[in-house]
């Protein structure tokens, strides 16, 4: 415990407001190609008519997110690129059958997820729509590290080493949490969009997101605790 480290203690209201603002900021960044003039129904109609310019538009809008999802799932740039190509090849082949029950993006992310899982040869159980509660998960997560490392100077969190640690911690997440975390937390999809992309219920998405966050906090805490303790000793 670090009872003396109060410098970055948030009040409950601050915690909620800051987190929401960050997510909204992030969503704007993730969808900067989808502006007020974007007409998804028209784009889908053009894709279904075989309009190649529409294919290029679709690629420009969705390939960044698809690549990042594939990269985080495959942990390998070459394989992520293969999944990216496979996604668009399969999507443009199947676009005539796309009925628009979900958004074009969520449909594409589902194809990406399935393509990545096929390559990883994971059991199909994660494709099933399931209701989940915390008690049904594989054991409760008991926080192991309770040292408040938030007091580290902000610049200490901005190094390449820290960013690598953050990426590595994503890679170490169990598969079932990783896809949810990438789409919901990093790509800024809504809970419903994430659920549609992964064929999950919204409650399952919420449970998996929470689990992912707890895993990541536990994974990162020893590293940041060591940094904070070294910083305390130095001062």
């Amino acid at each position: 415990m670090n009872a003396g480290c109060f410098c970055l203690h948030f009040t409950a209201s601050q915690v909620r407001v800051t987190t929401i603002q960050n997510r909204n900021f992030f969503r704007e960044g993730a969808s900067n190609l989808i502006n007020d003039n974007y007409d998804e129904a028209l784009l889908i109609a053009r894709l279904q008519a075989g309009d190649k310019a529409a294919c290029a538009e679709c690629i420009e809008i969705h390939s960044p997110t698809i690549y990042r999802l594939a990269l985080r799932l495959m942990q390998n740039e070459t394989e992520a690129e293969d999944v990216l190509q496979e996604t668009f090849i399969n999507a443009f082949k199947a676009i005539e059958k796309f009925e628009g029950r979900s958004g074009l993006g969520t449909w594409l992310y589902r194809i990406t997820h399935n393509a990545a899982m096929m390559r990883l040869r994971k059991p199909q159980k994660y494709f099933l729509s399931v209701e989940e509660t915390l008690s049904e998960e594989d054991g409760a997560i008991v926080p192991k590290q309770l040292f408040d490392w938030c007091c580290l100077p902000e610049e200490d969190f901005e190094s390449d080493e820290v960013q690598n640690k953050l990426e590595q911690a994503i890679y170490a997440l169990p598969e079932k949490y990783k896809s949810v975390f990438v789409l919901r937390e990093l790509e800024g999809l809504s809970t419903q969009e994430t659920a549609d992309s992964l064929d999950l219920t919204t409650s399952a998405v919420k449970v998996r997101l929470h689990r992912a966050r707890l895993h990541l906090r536990d994974k990162l805490s020893p590293y940041f605790t060591e940094m904070a303790q070294a910083s305390e000793k130095a001062t």
Binding site: T18, N22, Q145, C150, E185, R213, L216, R217, S221
Partner: peptide, 10 residues
């Protein structure tokens, strides 16, 4: 620390 973890990822 959970809040900070979320912010770092954002």
């Amino acid at each position: 620390t959970l809040h900070k973890t979320v912010l770092l990822y954002h």
